[in-house]
């Protein structure tokens, strides 16, 4: 899928499968062996949850600077540890439990279905997978500059606020869509940055989980409210205070976008 989209995949790594090929791409036993033969800027991890942490450490130790972890169900303590390990060493992790990212018309690092994206000016950042495809599809002719799914886990390598700040600096992005959900405080942090005037570009927010009960996990490990932290209401209120327009449904996002962009 990524190959078809034009992403340059130079190597695969599967312990014990070194020396073979998949779709014409050479496979190595370790990341270091792959690095001897190729120049590598980014790595993507699909391995099962029990082995995903090790794969992340291996990529960090090999000096790769961008790692996308697609894998779901990694214990949260393990995620906290490898995210910290990577950060200290200057490696960015996206995910885990995420669909990855796409720059429409250029490259795909993940599992997003390319046909629902087109080149344009909206930067979309999301804690979700399929809902991101849906919203991108609905944004339609406006198209997207970059779409990033940061992942549905309680602790992730790259936060909503980091991506929003990068969109704010990105020349190709005119407006930003945030697809949030209950749990955690990342949406509140974005709202705070907006209030402090640290984000200039227009933002449209959507939060899933209006009808979610407390202390129940809604599919994503991160979509859970403990001790009243990160409720639907708190996020909506934070957005409103920061003058970030909120779409009640994904179907309203496009209309609100056209209004804020025209301004």
């Amino acid at each position: 899928m990524m190959l078809k989209y034009g992403t340059k995949i130079v190597a695969g790594v599967t312990p014990g499968k070194g020396g073979t090929e998949v779709n014409g791409v050479p496979v190595y036993d370790t990341v270091r062996e792959a690095l001897k033969e190729h120049e590598i800027d980014a790595s993507i991890i699909f391995v099962p949850a029990r082995f995903a942490s090790e794969a992340a450490y291996e990529a960090v130790d090999a000096g790769i600077k961008l790692i996308t972890v697609i894998t779901e169900h990694i214990p949260v303590i393990d995620v906290a540890r490898f995210v910290r390990y990577a950060k200290v060493r200057g490696t960015r992790i996206i995910g885990p439990n995420c669909p990855g990212l796409i720059v429409p018309g250029e490259s795909l690092l993940g599992i997003l279905p390319a046909k629902y994206f087109r080149k344009g000016t909206v930067g979309i950042v999301s804690r979700s997978g399929t809902l991101t495809y849906e919203v991108s599809h609905l944004v339609g002719d406006m198209g997207q500059s970059t779409v990033i799914g940061i992942g549905g886990d309680p602790i992730v390598g790259t936060s909503l606020q980091e991506v929003v700040q990068e969109f704010d600096q990105d020349e190709r992005t005119e407006a930003i869509v945030i697809i949030g959900e209950i749990g955690g405080t990342m949406e509140e942090r974005v709202a705070q940055l907006k209030r402090e005037g640290k984000i200039r570009k227009p933002i449209v927010g959507y939060i899933a989980g209006l009808t979610a009960p407390r202390e129940k996990r809604m599919g994503h490990a991160g979509a859970v409210v403990y001790m009243g932290m990160g409720t639907f209401e708190s996020k909506i209120e934070a957005f409103k205070k920061a003058d970030i327009p909120v779409a009640k449904t994904p179907y309203e996002i496009r209309d609100i976008l056209t209004k804020v962009v025209r301004k």
Partner: peptide, 13 residues
């Protein structure tokens, strides 16, 4: 997908 399913629930409401 968790987000899409939650969004569906919310839409019903």
């Amino acid at each position: 997908g968790a987000g899409l399913t939650m969004a569906t629930m919310d839409l019903v409401k």
